[in-house]
């Protein structure tokens, strides 16, 4: 087959790599070093009208939950699909664990590293492995268990105040996800409700459905899909806050689910 095992093959493949890096560099060079002034029309428009039209003081959230919410929906969908895909691939892997090939001859360094990781188990959550883990100490469990709830609250703060301060659904969601990981690591026995992947997956689906309903809610008020149904009302930021919360739940549940799956703790 095409394996470049020969010396010539190796040189040939390095030459190909150099060539393609050079070709890409040639195309990218003008774009990366462009020095025309940055266009400011959008910025000026937002500074003048952004708050009035969406209600958000944080202009970044006025864009991704207002003007360009369609993109955000697509992004949450990518997240949803990636989580489901990772889950299905990894659950297939588990059935292979026992009969993984065992020929050690001629393994590269990376393969050996892979073996070492397999032996230590990393942060693996599957219970029978727990005692052999080098990385899961009592100290780790005590700290993560105690700090988890605090981080969870902080995540919700970032999520709910995204319209007035740096933060928002995505940032808050990521913090919530790390809180979920901490809670899972810190409660090695039964785990908490949030370390149950079934709960997380239902939460994720519910947030996805809510997100769809919210983006369609403009229909009832004559704005059509993806409009802000509260535009023109006294406080249009309510819509942004709700959306931030939903996006945050969605991201938190998805990423938490992803991390727990990767650590082998899904049910």
């Amino acid at each position: 087959m095409a394996t470049p095992k020969t010396r010539f093959g190796k040189i040939w493949s390095k030459a190909g790599a150099v060539l393609s890096v050079a070709a890409i560099g040639f195309v990218l060079f003008p774009i990366f070093l462009a020095d025309n002034p940055w266009p400011v029309e959008a910025r000026d428009y937002l500074a003048a009208m952004g708050q009035a039209e969406t209600g958000a003081v944080n202009l970044v959230s006025s864009i991704y939950l207002g003007y360009r919410i369609f993109d955000t929906l697509g992004e949450t969908i990518v997240l949803l699909v990636a989580v489901l895909g990772t889950m299905s691939i990894l659950s297939r892997v588990e059935s292979l664990v026992d009969d993984s090939p065992a020929d050690d001859a001629g393994k590269s360094g990376a393969d050996k590293a892979g073996d070492a990781l397999k032996k230590s188990g990393g942060f693996s959550l599957s219970r029978e492995k727990r005692h052999s883990h080098t990385l899961r100490t009592d100290l780790l469990e005590a700290v993560t268990g105690k700090i988890g709830p605090v981080i969870l609250i902080f995540g919700f703060y970032v999520m709910l105040f995204g319209h007035v301060s740096p933060g928002g659904g995505f940032q808050g969601g990521v913090i919530v996800a790390s809180a979920i990981v901490f809670l899972t690591l810190g409660n090695p026995g039964a785990g908490t409700l949030l370390s149950n992947t079934r709960v997380l997956s239902t939460l994720e689906t519910a947030a996805f459905l809510l997100m769809l309903l919210l983006s369609s809610s403009g229909l009832l008020f004559g704005q059509g899909f993806f409009g802000n149904p509260m535009a023109g009302a006294e406080n249009p930021e309510v819509y942004i806050i709700i959306l931030n919360a939903v996006v945050g739940l969605k991201v938190g549940a998805s990423l938490g689910f992803l991390c727990i799956t990767m650590m082998g703790g899904h049910k």
């Binding site: 029309e41 959008a42 428009y45 937002l46 009208m49 039209e53 864009i63 207002g66 003007y67 360009r68 919410i69 369609f70 993109d71 403009g218 704005q223 059509g224 899909f225 993806f226 409009g227 802000n228």
Partner: peptide, 11 residues
């Protein structure tokens, strides 16, 4: 523009 937003920023 999607959602009837302002053309300066909308999709």
């Amino acid at each position: 523009v999607v959602g009837g937003w302002n053309p300066a920023l909308g999709i």
